[in-house]
């Protein structure tokens, strides 16, 4: 890939999204301040790596009801399974940062999804799982209020789920 194809790709995306794309291309070693030194080392691999927003499941993320989000994303009804493990706190320390992780012992997992029923847009995160990647993900979500959290696992073409209620309280004089 060369500079031309890089800018062509960028222009294509601009056209597709109908907005200006500001690409911040810069490098730094993980956790460090090494900064620009690395940018010179492999500039073109970076253009190829650009995450592609066209694959983002917009319709599912736009749904305001949990059932609609799941239907639009998977087109199927999930069945509860004790093989889906959802780890979430009983009481969130702050709804702004709720650590939630999902794992499963189910075979042939192709995606993991987390839904927060009471959020304005219930679909929080969707993770396609390619072959070779473990059926496990941990992340941190925002929760508007006390809500059921649902973990969905796509396995062998079926959707399995586990859910848990997480209580969310709001800030005051703490810490």
């Amino acid at each position: 890939m060369n500079n031309n194809s890089m800018s062509k790709q960028t222009n294509l995306r601009r056209a597709r999204r109908g907005q200006t794309r500001r690409t911040i291309v810069q490098g730094a070693l993980a956790g460090g301040l090494a900064g620009l030194g690395l940018a010179g080392a492999a500039p073109f691999s970076r253009a190829r790596a650009a995450a592609d927003a066209s694959k983002w499941p917009k319709d599912a993320f736009s749904q305001k009801k949990q059932a609609d989000a799941i239907r639009v994303l998977y087109g199927k009804t999930p069945e509860p399974s004790d093989k889906v493990s959802l780890e979430a706190p009983e009481i969130a320390e702050n709804g702004a940062v709720v650590p939630i992780s999902v794992s499963t012992t189910l075979p042939d997992v192709t995606s993991i999804t987390i839904v927060v029923s009471e959020n304005p847009f219930p679909l929080a995160a969707n993770y396609p799982i390619p072959a070779g990647t473990s059926a496990m993900v941990a992340n941190r979500l925002k929760m508007a209020k006390t809500s059921k959290v649902i973990a969905l696992v796509e396995s062998g073409g079926k959707i399995f789920s586990a859910s848990k209620e997480v209580k969310v309280t709001v800030g005051g004089c703490g810490g």
């Binding site: 309280t169 709001v170 800030g171 005051g172 004089c173 703490g174 810490g175």
Partner: peptide, 17 residues
């Protein structure tokens, strides 16, 4: 009041240090 009398308790919804 918060940090000597009531650490570990709640003020509104938060746990006091």
């Amino acid at each position: 009041s918060c940090h000597v009398q009531n650490p570990g308790g709640h003020l509104r919804t938060e746990v006091l240090a």
